[in-house]
């Protein structure tokens, strides 16, 4: 129970921690691109968007390693990570179409 729960506790916050990091990254890239007039601004943003979705997608697919040994915590963690992936796809999607600078 110990190692599984400890791992689940980390997994519980892992997805959304990554989500937050991606959030900061994209927001920073958007601001820097405008401030310094990057030429491939949109491309960079989209690349960062896709790159940050990869680990989120991976987490969203992580079922408990030892089959059958799910605890409340590992289930909650899985749901939270799926929510984080969905939130990533949705919230960051505007990088593909929104106007980037004022």
């Amino acid at each position: 129970m110990t190692p599984l729960d400890k791992r689940s506790l980390i997994l519980l916050v892992a997805g959304f921690t990554l989500w937050s990091l991606a959030f900061v990254l994209l927001y920073v890239l958007q601001a820097l691109g405008c401030a310094y007039d990057w030429s491939h601004h949109r491309l960079i943003l989209i690349a960062a968007y896709l790159a940050s979705l990869l680990p989120l997608a991976w987490l969203a697919l992580q079922r408990s390693r030892d089959r059958g040994a799910t605890t409340s915590l590992s289930t909650a963690a899985l749901w939270a990570n799926r929510a984080a992936f969905a939130a990533g796809v949705l919230v960051f999607a505007p990088v593909t179409f929104g106007s980037m600078c004022l």
């Binding site: 958007q30 943003l45 960051f92 505007p94 929104g98 106007s99 980037m100 004022l102």
Partner: peptide, 8 residues
Amino acid sequence: IPHLALAF
């Protein structure tokens, strides 16, 4: 604020 950030 640019549209992109607004939409975010």
